[in-house]
């Protein structure tokens, strides 16, 4: 747990959003929508909550972070680069030939990636395996897995949820990134999920439902879960907005997997820069 204020984390999340837009623009390829919806809790994990060592990415006692929805890796790459897992210049190589930053995360190429993902529905089972190994090896690390609400339509998610319950994995925390959009439309339209919080509760999870863009709520939920090692796996049911932070991307399906053009890029960066200046001013005044 690192010493950083909520307001500073909010500022950090804006910085991460800027890096996401910048790298996807330079790659002219990638998934901005989900990267932005997942930005706040991912920032909270990497810059405050997780016990990790960028100098030693394979440290066996580290907390693990898995993007089961692997396509939103730009947000994870932004965090890893900022923490020094690899040089920031690497961000410009996203999706380019020979890059450590593949279109979907590759553990054998990129330091800090705990498992290769990209095919939806599979990362949670891998996280369950890591959490079981933690119990077997008497380690006290936690495993964080980001699952999309669209992704929760995959049956393997629920197979893995069963297993997490059976093996009492209170060291497993799911961030359910509920942005209500998937590739072909809204989740309600394509395949209604119903109340995913109730579903995970029925599978034996402790569930906290919150605003996935409210940093304080995210930190409070993590604290509650860390203090409640009761044998139940955890789920943070985070209501989010796809494209959050860039006005014209918010809640627009098309921004699932599209890169901004030059004009859109400038507009997005200007908005985020203004937000960042506001946050910096607040943080300066509080020091």
């Amino acid at each position: 747990m690192k010493d950083i204020s909520t307001k500073e984390l909010e500022q950090k999340a804006t910085e991460m959003r800027m890096k996401v837009i910048d790298m996807i623009y330079k790659a002219q390829s990638g998934h901005p929508g989900g990267s932005l919806s997942a930005a706040d809790f991912t920032t909270a994990c990497y810059f405050k909550d997780m016990n990790i060592d960028p100098e030693n990415p394979d440290w066996e006692d580290r907390d693990r972070f898995i993007l089961s929805k692997g396509h939103v890796c730009p947000i994870q790459y932004a965090c890893l680069a900022t923490l020094g897992y690899f040089p920031e210049e690497e961000l410009d190589s996203l999706r380019k030939e020979g890059s450590i930053l593949q279109g979907h995360p590759s553990m054998n190429r990129c330091p800090g990636i705990d498992i290769s993902t990209g095919s939806l529905g599979q990362g949670l089972a891998c996280g369950v395996g890591m959490a079981i190994a933690g119990k077997m090896n008497h380690k006290d690390y936690n495993v964080y897995v980001v699952v999309g609400d669209g992704e929760a339509q995959e049956g393997e998610i629920w197979e893995a949820a069963n297993t997490a319950h059976k093996y009492e994995l209170d060291n497993l925390i799911i961030f359910l990134d509920a942005n209500n959009l998937q590739v072909d439309g809204t989740t309600d339209e394509i395949m209604p999920n119903g109340d995913l919080g109730e579903k995970f509760r029925a599978f034996g999870f402790d569930v906290i439902e919150l605003d996935g863009h409210n940093m304080q709520e995210i930190l409070d939920a993590l604290e509650v879960f860390h203090n409640n090692k009761n044998g139940k796996p955890k789920c943070i049911y985070a209501h989010t907005t796809k494209g959050k932070g860039v006005s014209f991307m918010e809640d627009v399906c098309a921004w699932h997997g599209m890169a901004p053009n030059e004009e859109e890029y400038k507009k997005a960066m200007k908005e985020l820069q203004e937000k960042l200046e506001e946050q910096k001013a607040v943080n300066r005044s509080e020091i």
Binding site: I115, G121, A125, C126, V128, A133, G134, E156, T163, Y167
Partner: peptide, 28 residues
């Protein structure tokens, strides 16, 4: 029994669980 898991009738999940175990040094 300490080295044994039974994840039920859920083969896809079994493959993923095994992958996760292997990243932590197990030989599943």
């Amino acid at each position: 029994p300490e080295q044994y898991l039974n994840v039920g009738i859920a083969e896809q999940n079994a493959a993923g669980v095994a992958a996760g175990l292997a990243t932590c040094g197990k030989i599943p």
